[in-house]
Design a protein around this nucleic acid. Structure first.
Lengths: 257, 257
DNA sequence: CGTGGAGTTGACCAACCTCAAAACATGTGG
DNA sequence: CCACATGTTTTGAGGTTGGTCAACTCCACG
């Protein structure tokens, strides 16, 4: 069975520590585009690992509307935190048809018992999630609409590249302008205007579920982008996503950009 | 030695698991108001627990200015995530004279080895931090200036109450309007105007380092506040801050509000 | 064809920012 | 004890970014 995770890209964790990983993963589940598969507040015993497709993690506001927290991509954990708290602190939905595998709380505990370095690895993963939310916070709190949009798309590109899912100047992207708006604290209308500007400046175009970067340097400049947090604290060359087949030697999926 | 932490308020962790905790804490350190004791990007081997006073956690922008991520209060961990990543992902500064104790990475690892439930407890703590940043994100992304200010002060009150540091209608607060502005993605000037409105509406006054709540219900109403995330996922009565003296039976510090 | 979701555009408006300047504290050295 | 410097709060006038409302287009899908 193919099993994707990002646990193994953290240097101190050795390969055999991972041996116990696939055995605790339950069988794969499929969700259709648009499905909300974790609802905020419901009690959960599972955490998920996204195997393919795009998801989003968000909170709904009582006043209507929502704030998107993050866009999990293949290889990312989802709901790590919720496992330990009694209930999910936010909802998850599929933005495309997706495949996930899941862990139970007990599985996680067992892993920790068997091998404490797994705990360290999981904690490190949680730290990376934390760093990404923080960056998102800075984005919304202190940057202009244009910077936000550019920043967000650059980060997605960066993460997709690490996962081997983006070429140098183009990537597939199922996000609607509504999704972007909900993530960036903007109006869909304004997102549209910003995208037009980016297009007119020859920086990037977003159409038909595809983002095309025309001027990467220029874009990085507008966005004031520095994506070190994506690579887990500067370890750029360890940041790749590997693919393991139940204990078999992992193979690098893509050379680092 | 008195040792404050919030690890012990998580139900599944038993008391004797904590026995190893004070022994790994290095001796207490003092920092003066205004000191930046962790700088973003520097390599760190330590995490801190705030024993007394107020701190803030922030990121500086290259363009000048900063975004405050959180306000650690007594009992809170600081820099949990940075321990696992190679370097600090954000800076910490003292907002008042503070006392902290610190852990090294090795100490943490040792604890995990000795007792994996500590790993679980730490991860749970990290989850709570995560939940709070997420709430902050929603705040900045989707709420008006007035809601933000009210929300922020209510959350601080809530957390201070859990720590036994606030009465029902008043608490001590060293924050300047600049600090608030940096936390909420606003201008100090605008924060001032909002505070005036809140005062004029008879909801709260903030002066001379003291926040006085005049109409709690009204305030909760404008802020749309629901602070369940502060209590670690609905476990309101387990959310208290305990005080332990090296392995001695902990005593509840304050009845829950 | 018709329907509904997504993208696009324009006119208008308000929340919040910028700049500028006082008033008010608080602590320091003379 | 006063004079001064520094940091914090307060207020005003005017400008911009981004929101609101309201169409209309385009396209995928039945």
């Amino acid at each position: 069975m193919q099993f994707k995770t990002r646990l193994n890209c953290t240097p101190p964790l050795r390969l055999r520590d991972l041996a116990c990983l696939p055995e605790v993963a339950s069988r794969l589940q499929h969700f259709k585009r648009g499905t909300e598969f974790v609802h905020e507040g419901q009690s959960v015993q599972k955490a998920y690992v996204l195997q393919s497709g795009w998801a989003c993690c968000y909170k709904e506001l009582r006043e209507g509307g929502r704030q998107i927290i993050s866009f999990p991509l293949p290889g990312d954990f989802m709901g790590l935190g919720s496992v330990l708290l009694r209930s999910a602190d936010h909802s998850f939905a599929a933005l495309s048809d997706i495949i996930v595998s899941s862990f139970s709380v007990e599985n996680m505990m067992n892993m920790f018992q068997k091998n404490p370095s797994i705990a360290t690895a999981v904690l490190r993963l949680a730290s990376r999630d934390h760093a990404m939310v923080v960056e998102h916070l800075v984005d919304i709190g202190r940057r202009s609409a244009m910077e936000r949009v550019a920043h967000c798309l650059l980060e997605l590109r960066h993460r997709l590249r690490l996962a081997g899912l983006a070429s140098k100047e183009e990537f597939d992207c199922p996000l609607t302008q509504y999704d972007l708006a909900d993530a960036l604290g903007l109006t869909p209308i304004h997102v549209n205007r910003v995208l037009r500007q980016l297009r007119e400046r020859g920086l990037l175009t977003m159409k038909a579920h595809t983002v095309a970067i025309h001027d990467l340097a220029g874009l990085i400049d507008v966005a004031r982008y520095e994506g070190s947090y994506v690579d887990q604290g500067g370890a750029a060359h360890d940041g790749n996503l590997f693919e393991t087949s139940s204990g078999v030697e992992p193979v690098p999926a893509v050379p680092s950009s």
